[in-house]
Every structure is written in structure tokens, then in C-alpha cells.
Amino acid sequence: MSALKQVHFPKTPEEAARLLARGDGVRCLAGGASLVAMMNLDLVDPDELVSLAEVAELKGIASLPDGGLRIGAMTRHRELETEARLAGPFAVLREAAGKVANPPVRNMGTIGGVVALADPAADYPSALVAADAVIELASERGRRRVPAREFFVGLYATALAPAEIVSAILLPPAAAGVGLYDKLARVAGDHAIVSVALAVTRRPRGDLGVGLAIGGCGLTPVHRAEADVLLAAGALGDAAARRAGELLAAAADPLNDVRASADYRRLAIPRMVTRAVARAREELGRLG
């Protein structure tokens, strides 16, 4: 039987954080796509919920003065999927959003919810790591920023402290480049067997900045700076792609589960990376 006694509707992130501090049985509610499903399955049984629905600051996508983007935690997958400003390397996030579950879930779920939940099978974490996004967190003590590459620490585990919420996702000023997200799943709407998130930036001097991360193959997104460097130095060539892919396959710690075997995932990673890199190279070529 549900223990739920109260739902709060704070107006600011700080107020939300303060309400969360009331106790262990208090959880925040974003889109509810995961939380309500977990409550229905009796996996969690909160006493109180802190709805983020009325926290104005968490809504929408704002362009920052420096040219970067600030994505409010309550931004729905559907909004991101159709967001034209997610261009260049940040298209990785747009493509990932379009491949989350199915339209009903995309209309319901939020980026903040995915980031906070840190389901290892989710689509955004690898995309955010590839894009080198920064997660902004809010608590009664104020705001802090944690790079996505440090934020995801384990199975459903993040850098989020108790009584702290995800307030926004920050992206640096968009540079020219390409971003893409390739998801292999059994059927549309399923979680990834393997996903490849790739963000490539062409820096003003002409050299490349690369972010490559693998989803679905371990407790956290698989990312290795050496792989990024290899790809940049190798100008996204096939040989570099294969080596980067093999590096990530070795670094990955995939499971045997009903979606696929761990061996298959390790086999697929370099192959999918090579294809993603080739696609990025072509698209970059088309940019001139």
C-alpha cells in the first residue's frame, strides 16, 4: 500500500532542495515516467513527493550570452528532439532524445530525470559525456557544476548529493562540427544494446575536438580520453576509428542480459564506432 502522504509544489530550485531535506522518504518528481512506474512496481515507496512542475527556472532552453545553451532540467525529451539550437556537435543530444523510448515517454520524461536517475541503459548519459556537457546542481547551499564526465559514477549513482537537485544541463558555445547518436536496440522503444555517441568540433584553427562515448555497455557511459585524442589526431580515419573502438570495447564492462550477450556488445562496439566515425567524417567534409 502506498505510503504517499503529500505532494509539494515548490517554485524555486532552492525551495525544492529544502523540501527534499525533510527526510529520506521524500523524492522529487519530474516527468514521472520512471518514478511512477517504479512506485507502481513497489520498487520505491516515497512518503512525500516534491514536484518540479512549477519551478519556472527549470523549464525551457535558454541561449547564454557566451553562445552556450542552458537546458532546464524539466525539459522534455520531445522538446530536445525538435530543438534546432542543438546543432553541430550537440546534435548528438538531439539524436539521442529522438531515440528515447517512444512518443508517449518522450512527451513525459525530462532530461533532468534521466540524468538524476542514471539508469545505465538510458540514452542521454553517453550523449552528454560525448558532448562534454556540464550538469548544474542546486541545493540550499547554492549551485555547483559537475562535468558530465564526472557526474555518472555507478549503477543509478551520481555526484548528486542528498537534498540536491539537477537544475540544468549546460552546453558550451556551439562550434562548427557534427554530432550523432547511433542506437542498436531489439525493437524501437527498447533500451540500447549498444549506443554510440559522438560529438566532433572543428576548432577555429582547424584541428578537431572529439568526444566519443558508449552507452548500454556498463554501469556508466564508457569514455576514454585516449580514444578521443586518437580520433582527433587520426583525423577521423578508419584506422583511428578502429583503434578507438577497440579501446572502448576493452574498457567496457557489458552485461549478459536478455537484450544481448556481453561478448556481442564487445564485438559490436568497434564496428559501430567505425561506422559512426565514418559518418561524422563525411558530414564534416560536407561542412567544407
Binding site: 517512444n102 531489439r186 525493437v187 524501437a188 522503444g189
Partner: peptide, 14 residues
């Protein structure tokens, strides 16, 4: 896999 999360059937997209 006794759930629709783990047991998948084709969708309209398949």
C-alpha cells in the same frame, strides 16, 4: 524476462 520491459514484441516501427 517476464515483463514488457524485458520481453519485446515488434512495434509499428518494426
Amino acid at each position: 524476462n517476464p515483463t514488457l520491459m524485458d520481453y519485446k514484441v515488434p512495434t509499428t516501427l518494426e
